[in-house]
Design a protein around this nucleic acid. Structure first.
Length: 465
RNA sequence: GGCUGGAUGGCAGAGUGGUUAUGCAGCGGACUGCAAAUCCGUCUACGUCGGUUCGAUUCCGUCUCCAGCCUCCA
């Protein structure tokens, strides 16, 4: 059993081996909470959720830390515009974010740290960087001294000259080098601030993550994930801080970056405004459908988000649920039953692609193969075993979490009792070969969004979806 | 301009030096009173131009196009 992960730093797929056997430390950058999250924000949450599920099967201790950035200029601006206290606004949208990704089946991380709760760790780390000659204070700011880190640029594969040439930001006069970035900056009285050796101020974005990683996972971690748009400068800067604060320690063993969702041929982003919020999407679609859509592409690719993608995901997921409905015996079980199952309980055909750099499209293909086998086998015991395989695979992917019947019957616009009585009426009509009446009843149900299926064991109904 | 990655059938999207991805949709058939679900069959593929090779969608190079990053961003 080997797990492979594509590592951004080396640009290669590498066999995964944690620093300490049986212990995996994983950190994923979460959102800055100043408004509702969009579906692009959910991609890393979902992808790394699947990774965590897989890793927990093979390693006894997995610590998954997923942060929330709750101190940021955009938060300040949003709070000001709202006339709302900054802390209240950040808390509110942090809760909204949690609710949104929970609806997509994302399990809670082990730790969900907030930057504002780690100010002393941040200050400590900045002081260490200054002591070691990698940072300097100037005019109330503290800046990281980029030229002091010879390997700067290695993660984003940028040469220092190119960073300079491409720079579109004005260079502050207190910077020794244009590439130096802020670790600490002063705050005015109306902005949030904390006392520090450099006066009242607040942390820069990059140091927050480094300090929280250090606190919760230590100086050297196994996996660091996030969107590919964070590679530069955020993760490059984190790498510089995390490396320079120690002597020759590897800050991150595997850097993982998910691709970005596109909408209308462009990256979905709050700045561009071409976003679909998770909130609005899950008003229209089950969270599981949205999750399936996200998993239908490989996490490193760029997936085109569209209504058609959602429609296809919905149909595909229906097919899997249909197999559960058609499996003989009790179909009240869900993938949730495999929450604590041993690795042997999971289908290798689904697991193997996931171990190979989280190949979710291939895993889903294997799920459909199992679903097909459920229909094709004539053996009831075999079908039940396959049903369990399907549910187990569903657990890894975070889908099939609803009892199959409920999935097709929940949110029925009509009273189930009425539906059953209509079905009975139709059965009598069919028995007397009055197909015109029988079809009329079926039409009437269809008008209420109810679809009928006549099976060998009787007629069953489901909500059209 | 620099860096990184990508171009696969109607759509989405894996993968592979020679053999079916898969799903969605379409078409034909089976089943059904008719449907639905399911099963069987089936049509559209690997951006361009070269090279390596017995053989390339898969390796190498060229070109074209696209996206991301170089500024906050998942």
């Amino acid at each position: 059993m080997d797990i492979y992960i594509h590592d951004t730093l080396t640009g290669a797929r590498r066999r995964f081996e944690p620093l300490v056997p049986d212990r995996v430390s994983m950190y994923v950058c979460g959102p800055t909470v100043y408004n509702l999250a969009h579906i692009g924000n959910a991609l890393p949450a979902v992808a790394f959720d699947v990774l965590a599920r897989v890793l927990r099967l093979y390693f006894k201790h997995v610590t998954y830390v997923h942060n929330i950035t709750d101190i940021d200029d955009k938060i300040n601006a949003a709070a000001l515009a709202n006339g709302e206290p900054i802390r209240a606004l950040a808390d509110r949208f942090a809760a909204e974010y949690r609710a949104d990704i929970a609806a997509l089946g994302v399990l809670n991380p082990d730790v969900e740290p907030r930057a504002t709760e780690h100010i002393s760790e941040i200050i400590d780390m900045i002081e260490t960087l200054i002591d070691r000659g990698h940072a300097y204070a100037a005019e109330g700011h503290v800046l990281f001294d980029v030229p002091s880190d010879p390997s700067y640029g290695s993660l984003s594969k940028q040469s220092l000259e190119n960073i300079l040439e491409g720079a579109r930001v004005e260079v502050a006069p207190y910077k020794r080098d244009p590439k130096d970035f802020v670790l600490w900056k002063p705050s005015s009285d109306e902005l949030p601030g904390w006392d520090s050796p450099w006066g009242r101020g607040r942390p820069g974005w990059h140091i927050e993550c480094s300090a929280m990683i250090r606190k919760h996972l230590g100086p050297s971690i196994d996996i660091h994930g996030g969107g590919s748009d964070l590679t530069f400068p955020h993760h490059e800067n984190e790498l510089a801080q995390g490396t320079c604060v120690e002597d020759g320690q590897v800050y991150v063993r595997y850097w993982m970056h998910n691709g970005l969702l596109r909408m209308g041929d462009e990256k979905m982003s709050k700045s561009l405004g071409n976003i679909a919020t998770i909130r609005s999407l899950r008003g229209e679609h089950p969270g599981e459908v949205l999750r399936y859509a996200l998993l239908s592409g490989h996490y490193r690719g760029s997936l085109e988000w569209s209504d058609d993608l959602i429609r296809q995901a919905r149909s595909s997921l229906n097919t899997l649920y249909q197999a559960l409905v058609d499996a003989p015996g009790d179909n009240g079980a869900t993938s949730e039953n495999f929450h604590d199952a041993n690795v042997d309980a999971f289908p290798e055909t689904v697991l193997a692609p996931l171990r190979n750099d989280l190949n979710t499209p291939q895993a889903l293909a294997a799920m459909h193969a199992i679903a097909g086998d459920i229909h094709k086998t004539g053996d009831a015991a075999r079908a039940r075993a396959l049903r369990d395989q399907l549910l187990a695979g569903g657990w890894l992917l975070g889908i099939l979490g609803t009892p199959a019947n409920d999935y097709f019957q929940h949110a029925a616009g009509a009273d189930p009792g009425w539906i059953e009585s209509m079905i009975e009426k139709r059965a009598r009509a069919r028995d007397s070969r009055d197909f015109a009446s029988a079809d009329a009843i079926r039409e009437e149900l269809a008008a209420s969004g109810i679809e009928l299926e006549d099976t060998a064991s009787g007629t069953r109904w489901k909500v059209m979806r």
